[in-house]
Design a binder for these strands. Sequence first.
RNA 1: GCGCCCAUAGCUCAGGUGGAUAGAGCAACGGCCUUCUAAGCCGUAGGUCGCAGGUUCGAGUCCUGCUGGGCGCACCA
Length: 619
Amino acid sequence: MSLGFLHPSPRPLASGTRIVMERLKEDLRKALALALPGQDIALERPRSGDMGDAAFPCFRAAKAMGKNPAQLAQELASTIRIEGAELVAAGPYINLKLHPEIRAKAMLEALLGSTPYGSASATGETVIVEYSSPNIAKLFTIGHLRSTMIGHALAQVNRYLGCKLWRLNHLGDWGTQFGTLLAAYKRWAEADNPKLDQDFSWADEIPEKRRSPLFRLFQLYVRFHQEEEQSPEMRDEARLWFKRLEEGDPEARRLWKWFRDISLAEFQRIYDRLGVGFDTLEQGEAFYEDHLKPTLARLASSGLLQDGDAGAKIIDLSDVGIQTPYLVQKADGTSIYATRDIAAALFRQKEYDFNRCLYVVGADQVLHFQQLFAVMNKLDPWFKGRMLHTPFGMIKLPEGKMSTRKGNVIFLEDVLDEAVQRVLAIIEEKNPELPDKAAVAEMLGMGAVVFFDALNDRVKSITFTWDRVIALDGDTGPYVQYAHARICSVLRKAGGDWAAKARPQNVLDSETSIVEYKDASLPASMTGLEHPSAQALLFELSGLPEAICTVQRENMATALARQLLAIAKSFSGFYTNCPILHADNPPEVRESRLALCVATARALRQGLFLMGIKAPEEM
RNA sequence: GCGCCCAUAGCUCAGGUGGAUAGAGCAACGGCCUUCUAAGCCGUAGGUCGCAGGUUCGAGUCCUGCUGGGCGCACCA
């Protein structure tokens, strides 16, 4: 069943990025339209820059005209003339190939100006991204990284492309799990460890760095679920506590708030470390408590509410092809996540009047979101096409599924710490004189983990192994960061204000998605950039805006991560083949190559920043 | 049982709206540091795109069936 999500429409790029290249492609499009009336003129981007900057496949047009595609390509290429570029027939394709100098000038103009490359001006659209959404009293596992960083990147990119953004964290701070916590606390902590400030005698010893009230809360949670397997009646105990909580029992309330505070403090520490931010943390599940009755009333008055088993309330969706009924109130009268999600959608409609709302939630919840969206469409056609679940695959262990309840999980902080440790070891080996090693190691370790997560299609599940997640060479974050650091090193050695040209003018925190640079002047000539390696780099740089748009369209950072790799890789080629500061270089060659370095550094830093990755200037 | 997702090199994966000789990284093998950071660069080898049909001028990509794996199928979120 497709609900026809309203994808963002193509929008004009900001003026500084409406570059020569786009104009030439437009010229080609017009010329082809003239030569081939009635044909669909769709240009493609060639796989590699030495084929050209744009390509037109002649198959369809040739068929319509009863000609051989290669022959048609030949004819068109010889009749159409585009100023500043050449047209080459390559088999059934016509390739538009910019003159090296034009290509260089176009890209440097786009990247050395102060308008963020590939950004778009305000569109007037409002986008909500709901992401991270951890459950209270659980520690962040490697699994939580996915929603957090995918959501962060989507927020950054949509903001970069001119959308008004609301970044929401649907905290799991309500629900039956709180019954579990309350019951567990009463059973095993209240009497002898009421402040959770000591280790439990019945639990395994906690590693030093995890000794926290939150971890002990987590231990309570795990123990409860373990014992519950033997004594199923404990479930009722948990349900009862949740019922008390929802009915306003003062003790349950007090403990709930305390548990929540303990958790939030810890979460904030992680978010700070990841550089992730939200516009509010106050709209978690508990926030909708007061909305639940009105929501149920509205469902009832819309005629959607039906009686289920044992007094539960359900919504039947079989008329839209969903056979599983949607449970919105449990038999004991307490609420359930579904009700809170409906309430949240209604609240957001009123509060934010959004155009799109993205739910960055695991793939195991697809049915839930199909049901939710179906209900919202029935409730108000306004919702149609405005909500999208962007599911992601789960992270499994080689032994199987991770389970918080069973306690066999990989904690996020352990992964981050291990990554930083491995980086530190490499720094000691390769660059022991590096200033501020700890800070650089933090950026690189984080870069490795975050980049890895973004590299592949989000719907695929990942089997966690340390060596894969923390890989530091090959197609990795540190590879891109390394290219950036080498550029900065060259720029430092060039002297003058070269290094400053690649340095951001603003603070790069989660409140902005744009890296601001000063307007830098173009080199006097493009001599020195005609080398194939330089041209290949320029071609990859030209692919960045499209990659950013792809992130928005496909709701994952994969395309951006891969374009950054392509840029970094072609920079390495340029760096190897084209000496920049070589004494024999004429001044204009040195200048144009340094300008290309600045342009590349800016593109890399901006791209990494959108993904939530920092770029050290030295490593 | 029903529904959704996945299957591409030894391993991990890229391959918008069907289009050029299916591409990377890792691992393997062979080269490159007296020039700007070797976390790098260059090269070699590695493929019946799970299987079988179909649509099309053209299928890794779309359709049908099958096989294998994952997830889900109301009182957790």
